[in-house]
Simulated assay, not measured.
Amino acid sequence: MREEQLIYETCGVCDCKRKHGIHLYNLFICRDCEKEIIQTAPEDQQYHYFLKKLKNITQTKQFS
């Protein structure tokens, strides 16, 4: 039986290492943050936090 190689990436919103999420242009967003972003209304205070984090979408991806 072959062992699946797990690839963890750093979420561009919460900065946690996760193995499941989406890539939006060059920004990885974990599933938890994706759900929060979708459910946050524009009048919520957290909405502005997400906007600030999503501005990083235009930065070049850093490999370490």
Rank of each mutant, 00 (worst) to 15 (best):
37 I>P: 15
43 E>L: 06
38 I>K: 14
6 L>A: 08
54 L>G: 00
6 L>Q: 14
16 C>K: 15
40 T>E: 01
52 K>W: 09
47 Y>D: 01
8 Y>I: 13
16 C>N: 14
55 K>E: 04
16 C>G: 06
6 L>G: 05
32 D>P: 13
59 Q>R: 13
56 N>W: 02
28 F>W: 06
23 H>Q: 06
21 G>Q: 03
37 I>A: 01
12 G>C: 00
47 Y>Q: 05
49 Y>R: 15
25 Y>R: 03
7 I>M: 08
21 G>T: 03
55 K>M: 04
36 E>C: 13
12 G>S: 04
15 D>I: 14
44 D>C: 06
40 T>N: 04
53 K>H: 10
4 E>M: 04
4 E>F: 10
51 L>C: 15
57 I>D: 01
34 E>A: 04
24 L>R: 10
8 Y>W: 10
34 E>F: 09
31 R>E: 06
23 H>L: 03
21 G>F: 01
10 T>L: 07
16 C>H: 13
20 H>W: 06
52 K>G: 08
18 R>Y: 05
53 K>V: 11
17 K>F: 11
56 N>R: 06
60 T>V: 08
1 M>Y: 03
43 E>N: 09
42 P>R: 02
5 Q>M: 12
51 L>E: 13
26 N>Y: 07
43 E>Q: 11
7 I>H: 14
11 C>I: 10
37 I>T: 12
34 E>R: 12
